[in-house]
Each structure stands twice: as structure tokens, then as C-alpha cells.
Design a protein around this nucleic acid. Sequence first.
RNA 1: GAGCUCGUAGCUCAGUGGUAGAGCGUUCGGCUUACAUCCGAAAGGCCGGGGGUUCAAUCCCCUCCGGGCUCACCA
Length: 728
Amino acid sequence: MDKSYIPSYWEPIIRKKWESEKLGAAEMRQDAEAFTVILPPPNANGNLHTGHAMYVYEDIMIRYARQQGKVALWLPGADHAGFETQYVYEKHLAKEGKSRFDFDRETLYRNIEEFVALKKGAINEQFRAMGFSLDWAKEQYTLDPSIVAVVHQTFKKLYDDGLIYRSTRLVNYCTKDGTSFSDLEIEHVEREDKLYYIKYGPFVLATTRPETKFGDTGVAVHPNDKRYAQWVGKEITFEGLAGPVQLKVVADTAVDPAFGTGVVKITPAHDMTDWEIGKRHNLPAKQVIGFDGKLTKLAGPYAGMRVKAAREKVVADMQARGLIDHIDDHYVHTVNTCYKCGNVLEPLPLPQWYISVKPLATRAKKLITSGEVQVHPKRFKRILTRILDDFIDWNISRQIVWGIRIPAFQNINTGEWCVELDSVKQEKLIASGMWKQDEDTFDTWFSSGQWPFATLMSVASAKYEVSSAQLYAIIANTNEAQHEENNSALSQAYKFFNYFYPTTVMETGYDIARAWVARMLMLGVYVTSKPPFKHIYLHGMVRDGKGQKMSKSKGNVIDPLKLTSQYGTDALRLALIFGTAAGADVNISPEKVVGMRNFVNKVWNIGRFITLMTEPMEGAPLNQKPADAHTLCAKMRKELEKLSQTYTKHMDAFEYAHALNALYEFIWHRFADVYIEKLKNDARAGNTRVQQALSETYTTCITMLAPFAPFVCEAVTQSFPSRKPTNQ
RNA sequence: GAGCUCGUAGCUCAGUGGUAGAGCGUUCGGCUUACAUCCGAAAGGCCGGGGGUUCAAUCCCCUCCGGGCUCACCA
């Protein structure tokens, strides 16, 4: 045995061993309880970053469950990450001087598919390097046909239940990326703009967007505002930049009389509030900004200009005519921007598919409040219930090609919609020339929101060779009695599904509690009538050694693989857990990893001593009285027993940092520093009772440490042929 | 504007209603046949300010100051 633990030597050997013995493979066993964790699927096009390393929590859970004799399934997968990936691909296209408009839909899709295929799987290698004991044979991908089938079924079910509706309303649309977003994907950015006080017929009113005036169909004031009471209900007419303007004056409580002059121009087609006000007062919506970000024909002389240029021109022209009262140059407000490209999002009227979230959210919330789904750490319980309370209807349409196309068809003549999943019937619809499939794809979160049950349905249907759609039908209309006695492949698959579902723990970062966890709860309980998971464990964000967010521009990004190649995977794994509070952000610095590397080495060297102590030694040192040694051994065993209880208590309560802390303290500062030091001479001198006590204590420690630092524990085990493996 | 969260040793952070802890760093002494990626010892904190509850508060409550995060349709 080497004097120090050499990760670069051991890790490849151990990884190979785990792979050949299929460590992660989980098969249904009726005599054992299942412990299921679904890996949050990384972007198929992505690379491992330090955030992914936090999934080490899941590996710890899984390895611990495995030690307890449970059937521990950790199911890997990848997400096609619709918009994210198409965005990256378009940037790649731009480098070649091309754009998405150079291709038809099918070609573009195929190209992106190939683009992703090049990278897909890279991250799996990196997960393996982290020692993650996933069940690789069961890996799923959001675009696998069996998953797509499930996603389609859910859309249909929602549609049939009246929970999907199509509605034209203002969506936040990125004219650069050419798609709308859900409310959760919007980035609110505070910035300073100009607030223009413009003369508008008899009024002066404040606006940040004079260029939208061509879409104005009304003017609003507060109902109690005496200054303008005489105007309410009347029509005003005046000469505008693009011809005569006729506007209705309405009274609406949405107007803040204290803001500006207390008068607001109403542009229903380009402002969320105005859209609502317009609906209340029957004001028509006139779209003056197109989906290309340019003004439409309705803008008269300004048609074809981009928003920003149009604004400048309009202001200049108004100034020339004396229509600008004054300008506030330092008006601070928030604008909605595209979270990806930073472009200001344009509220535009567009028909989209929406999910009526309320009934789903209400059910999901009950899971949390009733405690049927446990949230760790506790403070996230309130956060999740609030999230579910505040959910608004979810726009699931995206105007991109990279994703699951929405299986909805529209009659060209009547405008009527239908949802059809059967491919033969779909073809018939198309062939009739009367129906056209919606061009849009689903929001990525619509598919990943179904991940826990979709993956397990897919795995079960593949294993028993039934269609996932068939299995879906049974699960979605649960009728357990009917399938219990039956031995058909379908009911086998159904049993398999129910063995692993509901999954045990959903472990992920708190940053996606809203976008992902809440939606999984909603869709999971809606489809399966069961919660998708029994526990939610949310971990914090990984930051650099000073607590700063890692970013390329700051140059403080820490590549986890660099750390592992330098200090060993175990060291990184431990560094992510050690001395952290559950759910709190973790600062990772090379210094911390070094400290853990040293601990790993200590563990190795204790092992070395345990092997060497039985070898005869020349000039054996004096030993103490056997009785004293045995008293010490008894004391050590007692302490170990106490540690074992503490450890178990913490592990079962998801308090991994506490469990590790107790282990660290005992292994290093009690076992090594006190007991081995005091007993080493006796062991060396051949006291077999002492040797046995030390050896047993060590084995127990290694077993407890194995979920956290599996590599060194395995290495040490292999270097002791007599000791039982610890990673089963 | 609202919510959440943090403020503890030089740095990064754990922690508990009852005399303060870890890792790294620092100082001193040790190349002791498991380990110098080590061992032994030490220095270093009115646990952000103020008030309250309590026999007792770093921990509970209020308030202020200072960070961070998230949410929010004020034109």
C-alpha cells in the first residue's frame, strides 16, 4: 500500500469495477423496499458544472439506501432543453453567417438534433467520474418516443378535462429569438429611461413608450379623479402624427392618479395593464408592433422602423410640433427582458395554449400542506406553498422547432381545434387538406414537469414491451383492482411502475423550485393521482471561495473536474457537504478541497495501519497492561456505538452535513488521534483482541463513510481482502 | 413595494435557551516504522447595534444598520 492515497490510480480501477458489477442497476424485488431518485435531467447539450456536482447528495442517499438493503434506483436522463439549445445552436449558426430562417422546419430540427448528438453523453461520462451510481441502463431522454408519447397523453388529458385552452392575449415575446415565454422565464431589469410628458388632445400625459401611440384606442383616468371627471365617457379627437386620432376617455381604478398627470394612454395591444383595461371598456386592440420588432402599417410613416428608432423619431417629430410638454430624463422603472439574450420583451397579442393552473396548483398545494410530501429543509415548505398560490396560467406554446411539437390541429376553414395523438389519424387530417398542425412546440418545462412518472412509465413499458401510452391510460385512470390479479404484460408494467412510484426523493437546487418542482407536483398528482415524490430536498447554489456567484466574466468559475483530477473525487464530494447548512449556498474553494483531501488520506492511512499492525515487527515497543488496553477498547466501542446512532439519526433526517461532521470528528480526532495512538503498541505487540477491536471499528467507520467518499472506502476495502465490501 | 435569507475566530462557514465550534490560515515544538496530505501545543471572538421575553439568549420576539436572493403590470 502506498504511503498516501492516490486518487488518479484508484478511481479508474474502482469505476471499472462498479460498472462491471452494475452497481447502480436496480431491479424490482418484492422482499425489499424501493428507494427511488430521479436525477434532474441535465441539458443534453450541456457540460458538467459545479452545480451538477451537488447531485452528490443524491448519490449519498442512494448509496445509503443500498447499504440498508433497499432497492435503490437512481434514474439518469437528459433534457432536450428546447429554447436553451436552439439558442445555442443559433449562435453557432451565426458564426457561420447563417440563421434559422435559412432552413425549413424539418431541416432545422434535424440539424439541431445532430448538433446535440455530438455532445450528448459527455455529461454522463462526467457523472461517472463523480462516482455517481446511476442506473445507466434505464437512461431516458425527453425526446425518446416513449417519453413524447407520455407528454402527448398528458396534453390530451388536460385538453379533454378542459384544463387546456387556447387564448389570444398579450405574451412576452422576444422579437430577437422569435418566441414567447411563460411568466417564469422573464427577467425583470431595473433601469433608467425617459418619461415623456406628451400633449394629447386636451390632456398632458406621461408615457415611456410614445412610439406605441398609434395603437392607442383610449385614454384612462381614475374614477375618483375630479380633475378629469368631465371627460369620462366622452370621445376626444385631435390631429396625430399619423393622421386624425379618435379616443374614448374611460375611468378605471387601475390608474394611479398620483402618477404623472393622472392620465394614461391606453394601448391594449402592447401593454399588459392596458390590455386588461381595454377588455373592461371594450377598447379595440390595434397592433402597431410586429413580431419582427418593427412598427406595422398602422404606424403610417413610421412603419418598418424598429421600436427604438421609431421612438426617437416620434419624439423628435412631436417636439417639432410642440407636442412634448417636458421630459423626465431619469425615470427608473423595470422592464421585462429575455433571460437569454437580454433583449427587451415586447408584449404582443398572440394565440397560445394555456394550462388552467389553479385546479392543479390547489391539489399540489394540498400535498405540501398535508405533509404527504415532506420538504427539506423546512423553510422551503412555506416558499413552495406560496409559489403554488401565486401560479398564473401557464403558456406552454413556444415558437421554436427544437422540442415536442404540439399535437393540436386546426381546421383551416372554421378555425376549430382538435387534439389528435394517433399518427394514422393525424395523417388523415393532414391529407384532407382541411387541417393543419400547430407549428409550435411545448415549453420544455411541460415535458420535464412530467419527468418522474414519464421516465418510470417509459422504463416500465420498455421492460414489459407494452406501449407507454397504454400504460399511461391505466395509471391516469387508476383502477388498481382490475390490474392486480391480471398477469398480462401490461399489469406487470403497472406493478413495476407502482413499485418505484411515487419516487422517494426529489433532490434539486432551490433555484428551480418554481419552474420545475412546483410543476412536477402539479402534473404528477394530476396524472397519477399520487404525489410524484415523497420528499423534496432542496440544495443551495455553489459559489466561489468568497461567496460570489461563479461567472465566466468574473473569471471565478471552478471546473469540478479540475478539482477532482487534482485532489480526488472524494475530496470534492466531501467539500461540497462538509460544514454546510442544508439548503444554504456552498462556497467551494481549493483550500476546502485540500482539507478534505487530507481527511481522505487520513482514512487511507488508518487503513494502512490496520493492515500493518498484524505484521510481526522487530524491536516491538513496550505494551501497556492488557487489562488497560481492553478497557480502552471497550470505551472505544461504546463511543463508536454512540457515533453510529448519531449518524443514523442524521442520515435518516437528510442531515448529511451533520452525519459527516460526526464521522469526521470521530475518525480523525477520536479513533486515530486517541485510540489508535494509545493502542498501537499493543496491536503491534500482537494483542489480537486489540487488533480485532481496531479493525472492527475501522470497518464500521468505512461503511458509514462510503456513501460520502465511495472511492477511498472501496480502495481501502480492496486493499483488505479480508474485509467485506462496503458499497453493495 | 413584498417575501426570504445572512451578519459567529484573520478567511470560508457550522452550531445550540445554560461557561463558544470546524476547515483553512497564523505562532511554537516535533522527519515518533499508519500518515509531514502528519503529530503535539498555542494565540485569536462583548456570536452586527439597540430594546424585550426568561432564573438564563449568540440562539426566541421587536427594531435599526449592513449584505445577498427571489418575486412584483405603476404608464
